[in-house]
Amino acid sequence: MNLSQQIVNGLVLGSGYACIALGWTILLGVARLVNFAHGQLYMLSAFVTWYAMTRAGAPYWAAIVIAIVVLSLLGALMQLAMTRLVIEQNLTSLMIVTLGLGYVIQGGGALIFGGNPQTLSSVLARTKVDAGALWFTWQDVLVLAMTFVLYAAVWLFVNRTRFGSVIRAVAEDPRLAQLFGINAKLVYLGVFVFECAAVALAAALVAPRAPILTSMGFNEVIMTFVVVVLGGIGSIGGALLAGLGLGMFIAFFGAFVAPAYTTAAAFGMLLLLLVVRPVGLATK
């Protein structure tokens, strides 16, 4: 249990957290929307990928594409159902509605895919990188690389393109944005579809690490909430840093203190932070 292995573990865990948190960060930070079905969408994406690979015989990359398409369609449906609440900015109702839809997805997932744990196996997840005593797989390298690429791309898109400023304008004041000829509903739809596509990609990349269960839902991605809040709600760079930092914390806490209480420790930290700094770390 050497130090460098724990740093590698921290990077592996952290990039996974950051990767899963990306969709949420955008949804929350850019569009000021919440989605408590995030965990169940993650579960569904993992199972769609698994189904496409094992039952339809699709290669890994094609299964990822299928998952992204399926989840984008589902996201569009969800958003169309919630349009009125979104335009009204009724966050309380949106939280409850997405919680309910998540429960539907969980029940539906169990009906379609059964209650047994499955493994989403990718070739990369089974090939270990030969780096002396250090232990990690090519899948871990892929997740880390993809996370950095995705975060960079999203940051550029939001901050450096015209579309990015349109989205931010809608988030600031949907009615005012509409006065300027922006179709706010379409923008919200786009952001929500992106959230679902991002979670589909993240699930296809991260899920091969552990067995998948239709009941995993909320708790599987609970760390993303810590990432989003720690990173300063919606800050893209903040979320990436928070994800990696949290991964390090969990790796070291699990290795040297108590592996059974890592989630509790992460949330303990979050609670502490909220008392001291209710707006998160990244904001001034």
């Binding site: 159902a81 919630m82 009125r84 609440l85 009724n90 109702s93 409850i96 509605v97 997405t98 919680l99 309910g100 839809l101 998540g102 429960y103 539907v104 997805i105 969980q106 029940g107 539906g108 169990a110 009906l111």
Partner: peptide, 20 residues
């Protein structure tokens, strides 16, 4: 159990969407 979950979640979402 699974159908009950679908029903419960659907009722929760549908009520707030259609009859807040």
């Amino acid at each position: 159990g699974d159908w009950n979950k679908v029903i419960l979640g659907f009722v929760l979402a549908a009520v707030l969407i259609f009859w807040p």
